[in-house]
């Protein structure tokens, strides 16, 4: 607190002497937190180490023995997990605060090296034969187990990504949009079911009151995946007469999620729902416009987008107020 503001505080009579004293003491002994710096160092350390080891193994696969490599990776993984098991707080269905960031990142390193371990086993010895489902299923199970057991959100996100690999797609939002191979019908259905499963999982965490704070991760991935796959489903069947069913499903889902977000006062999800529904609605409107003659359609589009965006701005401001007030 700077001096000008501090003087202002002292003049007020409704500020107790104790509070003034608290602030004065804090100003005299300022503590400088290195929390985020150290956390970034840990993150970089884990990232560099796991990447470096990955390349090292890949390049030297012929010169050092396979058993040696496997042993090294296993040792790192076991070492990390041992540390975490030793320092872990007891399990609880609620949020468990991790003892420190080091714990978080060693757990992450342990999981990453376990993934490398399994991948290496499969690559070299084809332990799972040609049963690729199994080869991705086991890491996924481990990731989810670790995420719940040690209460680690980052590993939960990795688990969700692995669930997607197991189902045959890869799923972090960036890849979802950039890979863009949506032509295939089965891909769309897989994505859609994945999204819905995640949404369901998110709701179940709350229903059973089991790790309720994981709900955010499930819903974050679930909402993006479901809406994007519904939109692509619509475009994939653009000329079919039943293509509108995709958008109908989208609006139904949007309404459900809207009510849910209002209930939880989650503005992030509300924003996603509003924007995705706006895209879907605009697609319908533009489709209706382009049945007109060329120039008129352009004018109508401009008017529609200007008007609707203004309306949406008002809506967002209104919803924000409503959530704050409730």
């Amino acid at each position: 607190m700077n001096t000008a503001n501090y003087d202002k505080l002292k003049e007020e009579d409704f500020i107790s002497a104790k509070s003034i004293e608290n602030i004065r003491i804090r100003a005299q002994n300022p503590l400088f937190s290195l929390h985020w710096e150290l956390k970034t160092l840990l993150y970089l350390g884990v990232m560099l180490l796991s990447t470096g080891l990955g390349i090292l193994i890949y390049k030297n696969i012929d010169t050092i023995g396979h058993q040696v490599i496997l042993a090294i990776i296993a040792a790192i993984s076991i070492g990390c997990f041992t540390y975490c098991l030793k320092h872990r707080p007891p399990f609880s269905r609620e949020l468990v605060k991790s003892p420190n960031s080091l714990f978080d990142y060693l757990l992450l390193l342990g999981c990453l090296s376990f993934l490398t371990f399994v991948g290496y086993l499969q690559f070299q010895y084809t332990v799972f034969g040609t049963n690729y489902g199994m080869a991705t299923f086991i890491p996924m199970l481990l990731l989810f187990f670790v995420a719940y057991e040690f209460d680690h959100l980052g590993i939960l996100s990795m688990g969700i990504a692995n669930l997607a690999i197991w189902m045959g797609v890869s799923v972090t939002p960036a890849q979802l949009l950039s890979s863009g191979n949506f032509d295939n019908q089965t891909v769309i259905y897989t994505y859609l079911s994945l999204g819905l499963i995640l949404l369901l999982a998110g709701q179940l965490t709350e229903y059973f009151n089991f790790k309720k704070h994981f709900r955010f991760s499930y819903l974050h991935f679930g909402i993006h995946i479901s809406f994007i796959s519904l939109l692509f489903g619509y475009f994939n069947h653009y000329d079919a007469s039943f293509s509108f069913i995709w958008l109908l499903v989208l609006f139904a889902l949007a309404y459900y999620l809207y009510a849910d977000a209002m209930k939880h006062k989650a503005f992030y999800f509300l924003l996603l729902v509003v924007l995705y529904s706006y895209i879907a609605f605009s697609i319908l409107v533009v489709r209706a416009f382009i049945t007109f003659r060329d120039m008129e359609a352009l004018y109508f589009c401009c008017f529609y987008f200007i008007g609707s965006a203004i309306a949406l701005i008002r809506l967002l401001i209104y919803l924000n107020k409503k959530i704050k007030a409730s």
């Binding site: 980052g154 590993i155 939960l156 990795m158 990504a161 692995n162």
Partner: peptide
Amino acid sequence: SLIVGETFSGPSA
């Protein structure tokens, strides 16, 4: 958690 999910799921994905 999102950063961890984004960066570490890449290569194995």
